[in-house]
């Protein structure tokens, strides 16, 4: 399997700090190419949001280096979800206790994608960062764990109203501030000629689905440089349109 990747993050036009944290790891292993990509959008005011998102990124980085290789050796794909679940709950606990000790509220979202060559992929998800799949169309794989999404499902809001609702930034679930985290998991077998996109919510409020698809359709991304350029282009477009949040994106193309 061939893998092309790119990532870009920007503090945005308003904020003093970038609380988004990203992780992108690619390894050549005995079972083929393995890719881990994670986007975390931290919150909690000032530098604390960064701390929360970076803590989770660092935990997953360590997991990739230390705990994943034996699982790969034994082809234990199906065990990975349980490990992630445990890892996320542990992070929720740790960040939550830290916040309690300092009497502050901090936390982070989490959207992670693991691809094990053509054998397996796993998505884990908490909060409102997102994972999209782009092949012949743009498809949102994760479900926002937000108040407005909940209201849309309860038919109290239309999706259009939800976009404009002042509560659109209110999360139902996040690592560090939820009593019980219930991550969403999706797994399967990756299809080739596909682009996976992970992004923070700052990336998607101001640009349309069509614009995303036009920029990142698989046939348009032939080199990593092209991918990086397109990513920067859309992040800049967001800023021009007055997005105030931090903006982050990871692109992974598998062929």
């Amino acid at each position: 399997m061939q893998v092309l990747t790119a990532l870009h993050t920007d503090v945005g036009i308003r904020k003093q700090t970038n609380q988004d944290s990203l992780l992108l790891k690619v390894a050549q292993t005995s079972v083929g190419k393995v890719v881990l990509a994670v986007v975390c959008d931290g919150m909690g005011g000032l530098e604390k949001g960064e701390l929360a998102s970076a803590t989770v990124i660092s935990a997953f980085s360590k997991w990739f280096d230390n705990d994943l290789p034996p699982l790969l050796q034994n082809h234990n794909w199906n065990e990975i979800q349980a490990r992630w679940n445990l890892l996320l709950k542990e992070q929720n606990q740790r960040i939550g206790e830290y916040g309690k000790r300092l009497n502050i509220n901090l936390g982070t979202t989490f959207s992670g994608l693991l691809i094990i060559d053509e054998h397996f992929f796993l998505i884990g998800h908490v909060g409102d960062t997102r994972v999209y799949k782009i092949d012949s169309k743009l498809e949102l794989l994760t479900e926002d764990q937000t108040l407005v999404n909940r209201e849309v499902q309860r038919k109290n809001l239309t999706p259009e109203q939800a976009e404009k609702d002042p509560r659109r930034n209110v999360l139902l679930q996040c690592l560090g501030a939820s009593r019980v985290v219930e991550p969403q998991f999706i797994s399967g077998i990756p299809t080739l000629h596909t682009v996976f996109m992970l992004c923070s919510d700052g990336f998607r409020h101001m640009i349309s689905k069509e614009e995303i698809y036009q920029a990142f359709a698989p046939e348009k991304l032939m080199t990593e440089q092209q991918m990086k350029n397109k990513a920067i282009e859309l992040v800049e477009l967001n800023k021009v349109r007055n997005e105030t949040d931090n903006i982050s994106i990871i692109l992974i193309k598998v062929d």
Partner: peptide
């Protein structure tokens, strides 16, 4: 405005 918050505090 626009900061992500967790419902836990709100």
């Amino acid at each position: 405005v626009g900061d992500t918050v967790n419902l836990g505090t709100r």
